[in-house]
Simulated scan of single mutants.
Amino acid sequence: MTTKLIIVNPQTTVSTAIVLMKENQIHRLPVLEGNVLVGIVTQGIIARALPSQATSLSVYETNYLLTKTTVADIMEKTVRTVSASAQLEEAIFQMRQHKIGVLPVMQSAQVVGIITNNDILDAFLNISGYGEPGVISRVRVTHDHPGVIFAIGKALAEHNLSIQTLMVVREHQERVIELHIASDQATAVNQVLVDAGFELI
């Protein structure tokens, strides 16, 4: 989650909220009254609240309207949240289930952070080791059973070879173990795995 929170209160004007979003390059602002989360305002909500381009209002009249309209007038009051102790999968499920791109993160009824689609993508890149030097070896597990990952680790450890990151993914009815390994160990790792009876993709 992002712990650097840029927040507004219900009395904040929409024009101020727009400036805050632009200055901080963000698209959403939690709305707090004291320490209590009472709503959320997003670029989409603001866009829907703006007068139509077909309106007869001038730019000056539109700007005047934005300085008089408060966040409380347009914010989404039903805010879905996620606990700070929840698994990442829970946040992803909620966002997919409710078709939303942000969840305030709560701890003891206090907002302690905010998680967005971008935070989740960053987490995936971190988990997968993306950007780190190395290559990916993929092991097909046709008959999954307890001890497969242990056996892979044991085989590599016996040859003083290491794994940088490891992920287990589903492909159709099979499981695939993706090993991120150092480039200079790739040939040795692959040979050890084949010799140990594993099927490489």
Results as ranks from 00 to 15, higher is better:
P51M: 15
D184E: 15
R140Y: 08
G101Q: 07
I46V: 08
H27N: 03
L32M: 15
R80P: 01
S85I: 03
T78E: 15
V194N: 06
I120N: 06
M21D: 07
M75H: 02
Q11G: 07
G147D: 14
I40N: 08
T2W: 00
Q191Y: 00
I127N: 04
Q87V: 01
S85W: 08
A17Y: 09
H172K: 14
A54E: 14
E199W: 00
T70N: 07
E89I: 10
Q94G: 01
R96Y: 00
E174I: 07
A186H: 04
A17F: 07
N117E: 15
S137F: 00
R48D: 15
N9K: 06
T62G: 04
R80A: 08
A182M: 04
E171D: 11
G34R: 11
K77L: 00
K99V: 02
I26N: 05
S15L: 01
Q173A: 08
Q94C: 02
V41K: 00
V82M: 11
I92G: 02
E132V: 03
K77C: 01
T2N: 03
T81A: 14
P51T: 15
R28H: 15
K4F: 10
E199F: 04
V169Y: 00
I40T: 07
T67I: 05
G44Q: 13
I136T: 11
Q185F: 11
G131V: 01
I45N: 02
G101L: 10
T187I: 09
L193C: 01
A188R: 14
V102T: 09
N117R: 13
N190A: 11
G134W: 05
I115C: 13
D184C: 05
S85Y: 08
T142C: 03
S137M: 00
S58L: 06
L37K: 12
V14D: 08
G153E: 02
Q97L: 11
M167S: 12
S15T: 00
G147L: 12
T67Q: 12
R80M: 11
R28L: 09
H143I: 02
D184G: 01
T12Y: 01
N117C: 12
G101K: 04
I114F: 02
S183I: 03
E76A: 05
Q110W: 10
S137E: 07
T16I: 12
T13F: 06
V8H: 09
G39P: 01
T187K: 08
T165N: 13
Q110K: 15
V59R: 07
K154P: 09
T55K: 04
I120G: 04
T116Y: 05
Y130A: 11
T69I: 14
R48M: 07
Q97D: 06
N9H: 09
L66C: 03
L65D: 07
T12H: 00
Q164V: 00
S137Q: 01
L121V: 12
A182K: 10
G129R: 01
G44L: 11
S52V: 10
R140W: 10
V31A: 03
E61K: 09
V79G: 04
G113C: 07
L57Q: 13
I100F: 12
E178V: 04
S162T: 15
N160E: 15
Q53E: 07
H98D: 13
Q164T: 00
G129Y: 02
E158L: 04
T55S: 15
L200I: 15
V112L: 05
I100L: 12
I152Q: 08
K4S: 13
H143L: 01
T3S: 05
G153Y: 03
Q110R: 15
